[in-house]
Write a protein that binds this DNA or RNA. Sequence first.
DNA 1: GCCCAAGAGG
DNA 2: CCTCTTGGGC
Lengths: 263, 263
Amino acid sequence: MISIATWNINSVRLRADQVERFLTQEAPDVLCLQEIKTAESLFPHDVFERLGYTHRAVHGQKGYHGVATVSRIPFREIGRHDWQDNGEARHVGVELIGPGQGLILENVYIPAGGDIPDRTVNAKFGQKLDFLERMTRWADKLDKPTLIVGDFNIAPLESDVYDHKALLKVVSHTPLEVETLQRFADAHGWVDLGRKHIPAPERNYSWWSYRSYWRQKDQGRRLDHMWASPDVAAQSLSHRFVEETRRWDQPSDHVPLVTELSL
Amino acid sequence: MISIATWNINSVRLRADQVERFLTQEAPDVLCLQEIKTAESLFPHDVFERLGYTHRAVHGQKGYHGVATVSRIPFREIGRHDWQDNGEARHVGVELIGPGQGLILENVYIPAGGDIPDRTVNAKFGQKLDFLERMTRWADKLDKPTLIVGDFNIAPLESDVYDHKALLKVVSHTPLEVETLQRFADAHGWVDLGRKHIPAPERNYSWWSYRSYWRQKDQGRRLDHMWASPDVAAQSLSHRFVEETRRWDQPSDHVPLVTELSL
DNA sequence: GCCCAAGAGG
DNA sequence: CCTCTTGGGC
């Protein structure tokens, strides 16, 4: 059995102590981080090394984006896609060696998409859709047991947001985004582990805005996901959201997700 | 007997808790702050109010400089000099009412003066000397019992720095600054309480640079001062530097000075 | 709101 | 090294 976690940490340097606390408490075998917001040279390798996460694939970028996969079990890095060829660090892929042998683990940070859900006036929204379309063409060719995790920046189901109707016009929950994400899902037959283990319409959020006081009112959205190839999904034992991190000092706006696979 | 303190706090909002700790521990009747680095509207009035410092004269400025005098005993504000008429908040004066009746308390933050001690290539150095010259003309006319305190940004004596010879060419200890400060002293006959109570060449520092690791090597300078009119100096009972604050978390680069007067 | 980067000022 | 501002991003 191996356990895998994903967490948009919103600056790994600022929250190195929180990552340490999480790893100490939950002890996942692998942790996928997004928005590390640092160049690889300033990544806090020592923290992970000390805790036994001696295998690391860090695709960093100064100030923005950036993803990292750290692991107690060996892996080999299989690539860093830059689907839009714009230099943004939004993906790193690894293949597990030893325990979980052969599992492909794709760590991705999909663009947020700006404020206005209209690609003619908001280039960032167009970039988000284009990113998903390029990922879809890529996923169509995947033929190995794969788990893709990360911050997708889309809450696809009605029960993935605190107010479905109100958010239909808000970037992250628009029909256009949801349809585009669905085409990505269909391209590989991805199984949404979050909803496999916590079926809709059960409350199931991973993100709360820093703006306003929504935190207190529980106005969250499920933007972070773990999706598995059908064969991998069949081996998934559990899935949970570690909401406790929201109560820590100066938390990330995202909480971690953890899943267990019988590999 | 009244006690008066001065402290360059280097952001009163960031260190409101440290100011509270200092006031709780030392309980001076009056505290003069420099480099509060905030507009008056964002000054943490509540902290002082709660501790009984209900009389406050805050001469704030957004982001830079700024001075404030807070007191448990009543005073009336007598003015805010802008000697160079450049809008910088570097002075506030008050006159005590009740205990210490009639004492004038001038709180001042003299410009640092930049890096190069040459007014032809460094306008900031010229501004510092000009500021002192304008203060000198002002001091020449003072005729009331006065205590002037604050960050003078000059260490006048050899024993006011960790290495006199090395610092002769460093802004804060150059002969030109020391002579200019001496003319200010002579203009009113100010008595340096720091050296009245802790005579040279005893070690007597109020500031340690954040840059480099001088803190550990005790490479300090005496940049903060409390100077009294001769009549007030005759009533000065004690004077000390509260170096303990340097060991607090994220300390200011300056430590507080406290003096007691038999008024 | 919170995070990053630059640049100024100390 | 530390703090502030502005401006971008989410």
